[in-house]
């Protein structure tokens, strides 16, 4: 078995983003303003403050950490500053400015 690369990465690769809260380095791809993929490394995960502070959610699958809010904000910031391209940069309903900036990235 050998796993091939995701064909969608041909249209736009992952980009590095730094979490403003803990400096964790992750790889991110924005397909649209609402669609994000995040590739963590074990090092980045060890660095994440929210992850360390998180307690399990209720239920049998509660151990799964649902995600870091600070990183989410850092990703949003990277898009707004034009550091992180968005594949489909239709204007975001939240921040219309982000569109013009992102499209020049």
């Amino acid at each position: 078995m050998s796993v091939r690369p995701d064909n969608r990465l041909d249209d736009g690769p992952m980009h590095q983003v730094t979490c403003a809260a803990c400096s964790a380095l992750v790889q991110v791809r924005k397909s649209s303003f609402e669609q994000t993929s995040i590739q963590w490394s074990d090092d980045a995960l060890d660095t994440c403050v929210e992850r360390r502070a998180a307690s399990p959610r209720p239920g049998p699958n509660g151990e799964t950490f649902s995600g870091c809010q600070s990183l989410r904000e850092s990703i949003r910031g990277a898009v707004e500053h034009g550091d992180l391209p968005v594949q489909d940069d239709t204007p975001t309903p939240v921040n219309p400015e982000a569109d013009t900036e992102a499209s020049h990235a």
């Binding site: 397909s31 649209s32 303003f33 994000t36 993929s37 995040i38 963590w40 490394s41 950490f65």
Partner: peptide, 15 residues
Amino acid sequence: APEMTERFEFEIDTT
């Protein structure tokens, strides 16, 4: 390999 177990998140835009 690390890439098999390292955390990966993917949220789809359902719009």
